[in-house]
Design a protein around this nucleic acid. Structure first.
Lengths: 200, 200
DNA sequence: TCAACTATACCGGCTGGACGGTCTGTCAAC
DNA sequence: GTTGACAGACCGTCCAGCCGGTATAGTTGA
C-alpha cells in the first residue's frame, strides 16, 4: 500500500471538458491516431487524452471495436453532408457532381482540406487495421458518390478519373508518399476541369 | 545495412522447401498479411509459415522491424525494375513514361496485376503500421517516377493525373472501397490515353 | 588421419511488458 | 434508494525479443 490513490483528478490534465464525454473520447481517439499512429491508439491512451478513466471510456464504448465503429459512423456522416453541400454549391447541369468532387478534392484552402483529410485518414486507417469490415459505412457513402458521378452526363471514364485522381492524392497525403506543389495541384485541377467540360 | 549473413552461393545442403530460408520468411510474411491482415503478422506466425522456428527467423531478421525493412527493400527493388521494364516496352518519344505508367496501372491481365498489387499492399500496410518512416525506400522510388513523368513532355498536370488516378485505383483495391467494372476500367484507360496524346 | 575447434544455421522455452476487457466501488442527482 | 456516469484495480492473453542449446560443415594443427 505504499502508493495509494495519490493522484486525484482535481482538474483534468488536458483541455477542460469541451462537449460531452462521448464526443471528447471520439476526438481524443482521432487525435491520438494522428499524433502517434494507429498502433498508438489504445483504450487507456484515448481515455487519458479525453480526460476520463478507462472505465469511463468503456462505459460509453463497450469495446475497442465499438469505439472505432462510432468514429467511422461520425466520419461517414460528415463525408455525406460535405459531399451534399459541395453538390449544392455547384450550378445545375451536366457534370455537376463531378465539379463538386473536383472542388472537394482541390479545395482552395489547403489548411481546411488537410485538416479534414488527416482526420478522415486517421479514422479510416484505424478502422481498417482493426477489421476491414468496419469500413462498410464508408463504402456505402462512396458507392452513392459513384452512382451520382455515373449519372452525371459525362463522357465515359471521365467521372472515374476524377474520383480516382482525388483518391490518389488522398492516399499520397495520408501515407506521405509525396506532396505536390501548389503549381502542380493547380495544373492538375485545370486539366481535370477541362476533362469534365467535355460532353459525350 | 545488411541484416542477415552473406548469402551462400553453393546449393544448400538439404533444402526443406523452395528457396533459401530468408526468401521463404519474406514470402511467408507477405502471405500472412494478405491472408490475416497486418495484425496477423507476428514473428511466430511468419516463422511457422516459412517452416522455420522463431529463433531461426530471428537469426535472419534480428527484429520485426528488420523483417519489415527487408520486405520493403525487396518490394522497392521489384517496383523499380517493373517500372523500368514498362518504360523500355514503350516506344520513345514524348509521353513515354506516362504511357508506361498507364500500361502498368491498367495491365491487360488483371490477375497478374492484382497479384502484384496485393503483395505490394501487404508490404506497404505492414510497414506503415509499424513505422511510417520505413516507407522511405518506396518514397524514393515514387520520387524518381515523378521526376521522370515531369520530364516527359506532357501538358502540365496531365502526368500528375495519370499518377494520381493509378494511385487511386490502387487504394480502392487495397481497401476494398470499390471495384470498377471491366468496362469502367477500359473507359478510364481510353480517356487517360487521350489525355496523354495531347502535347503542350 | 583424426581430434579439436569454430562458424553457420537453426531450435524453442522464457520473460517482461502492453493491452483489451471485467468487475467492483464511488458519488452526485433525482 | 435507485440510477446514471464514471473510477481504477485487476486478470488473461499475446507478443517481441532474449538466451542457452544443438547439429552439421568446414578448418586447423599434430
Amino acid at each position: 500500500m505504499s502508493d495509494g490513490p495519490a493522484t486525484v483528478q482535481a482538474t483534468p490534465p488536458q483541455a477542460p471538458a469541451a462537449g460531452d464525454a462521448r464526443t471528447r473520447i471520439l476526438d481524443a481517439a482521432e487525435a491520438i491516431v494522428r499524433a502517434r499512429g494507429v498502433s498508438g491508439l489504445t483504450l487507456e491512451a484515448a481515455a487519458r487524452e479525453a480526460g476520463v478513466s478507462k472505465g469511463g471510456l468503456l462505459y460509453h464504448f463497450a469495446s475497442k471495436e465499438a469505439l472505432l465503429t462510432g468514429l467511422l459512423a461520425r466520419m461517414a456522416e460528415w463525408m455525406r453532408l460535405d459531399f451534399e453541400a459541395a453538390i449544392a454549391a455547384q450550378p445545375e447541369g451536366p457534370g455537376r457532381v463531378a465539379r463538386a468532387m473536383l472542388a472537394w478534392a482541390f479545395e482552395l484552402t489547403p489548411e481546411a482540406s488537410n485538416e479534414r483529410c488527416d482526420r478522415a485518414a486517421a479514422v479510416f486507417l484505424a478502422a481498417f487495421h482493426h477489421d476491414p469490415a468496419l469500413l462498410g459505412p464508408i463504402r456505402a457513402v462512396i458507392a452513392r458518390m459513384r452512382e451520382a458521378v455515373a449519372a452525371d452526363g459525362l463522357p465515359p471514364g471521365h467521372g472515374g478519373i476524377i474520383m480516382a485522381a482525388g483518391d490518389g492524392l488522398f492516399m499520397a497525403r495520408i501515407f506521405g508518399l509525396y506532396t505536390p506543389t501548389g503549381q502542380e495541384r493547380q495544373d492538375m485541377h485545370a486539366a481535370l476541369s477541362r476533362l469534365l467540360e467535355q460532353r459525350p
